[in-house]
Design a protein around this nucleic acid. Structure first.
Lengths: 221, 221
DNA sequence: GTCTATAGGAGGATAGAC
DNA sequence: GTCTATCCTCCTATAGAC
């Protein structure tokens, strides 16, 4: 994105699209905005990606393939290191969110922009988006849920799935960076280096929280 | 929304808009969709709300005014009950998220739809949206951050603000209900009555988590 | 392969009849 | 107050020149 080498047409489009989708959303960013920011012709999007949806999907695939490959590698390393024993929950979380946090801190090569886009897209449930996200994430989610089941044998599986859900929400929101709160509380310090330990501490606290009672104390005897 | 009494034009528009904005977003839901679903004429939106943005804003104001009034009342009651002492963090969280969770469980009168819209809108940072959200939330955020500072005297204020940020993310995401995970893990049970205790336990765990070290152990001597 | 030009439709908004 | 008819802008996609 911030490379000063001249990139090829397809890459220039992907970079411009990433930034504009992050800022305006899928509908809000028009192909005219994208192609003019990329310095290419309007028709180039259809030529290279088939359609606007195809472009959107490729923006995600480019980054997510890399991100999820790293996540799987981290988990492989962790499981090899533990040699059969269940790894600690904190290590599993770190393996999962670490690569994402690194990407979010990489402002130079557009990683930060992409993570904002990703956070925002989790709540944009257009049909075609859900479809390819499911495919893109399938293996990672499957492996990590199993790892968490093993790491937290005392927490019911349904509870773990929910908590993974909550964690992804907290992380998405932190990435999407709208700072709805900041508008009111005043801009608080947001050194990206501090985000990682803060977020990790919070997530781990939530993940290992004492189990809730049933609704209004309806839990078993 | 599900009332079978004939509502007036403005209300019919608001109800239809709420549902369609929740499903398709601000740009994705057109005025033609909204007015045809409401069974009113296209021109009625401009007559009653001035513009599409005016309509969007009013959709939020209608619900948020009520929601935030309840939140302030809950905090008032809590502080009166504690008579000068700092209330427990769990009680403060309950006062803040309780009314929202109740609204999210109210499928009959459209509260659930609205909370999905709200969750989604937190990550749609269009300029005019941020503007009126800041106004709508100003008093609530101000009062609750102060309450949390008092409830958690050992946690640095900056950390509390961050954690409030993370919590709102987890909650938004839970409400927006896309279930990116559910696509992969299989539809897990989502009895709305179970959401509240689960979410509360998670949030409280995160809020009270042990403080993080600095980045990579850079904390003080 | 990349561009120009344009098709063909949908968008929000408004003027004026009723 | 509500509806009809219409304006003008903007969209995505494509056909065909270079």
């Amino acid at each position: 994105m911030a490379d000063n080498l001249p990139a090829d047409t397809a890459t220039r489009i992907l970079d411009a699209a990433e930034a504009l989708f992050a800022e305006h959303g899928f509908d809000g960013a028009s192909m005219r905005m994208i192609t003019s920011q990329a310095g290419v012709n309007l028709a180039a999007v259809n030529y290279h990606f088939g359609s606007k949806e195809g472009l959107f999907q490729e923006v995600f695939h480019r980054r997510l393939a890399e991100l999820n490959k790293q996540r799987l590698a981290c988990l492989d390393a962790l499981e090899a290191e533990s040699a059969g024993a269940a790894p600690k929950p904190s290590r599993v979380l770190e393996a999962f969110f670490g690569p994402a946090l690194e990407m979010a801190a990489d402002t130079a090569r557009g990683g930060a922009t992409f993570m904002r886009l990703l956070g925002r897209t989790y709540t944009e449930p257009a049909e075609f988006i859900r479809k390819f996200m499911a495919v893109e994430y399938a293996e990672v989610v499957e492996r990590y849920t199993r790892a968490l089941y093993a790491a937290l044998p005392d927490v019911p599986k349904a509870e773990i799935v929910w908590r993974l859900h909550f964690m992804m929400g907290a992380v998405s929101y932190a990435f999407s960076g709208i700072d709805a709160l900041a508008l009111v509380t005043g801009r608080f310090d947001d050194d990206p280096a501090l985000l990682k330990p803060r977020l990790t501490a919070f997530l781990l606290g939530g993940l290992r929280a004492p189990l809730p009672d049933g609704p209004e104390g309806k839990s078993g005897p």
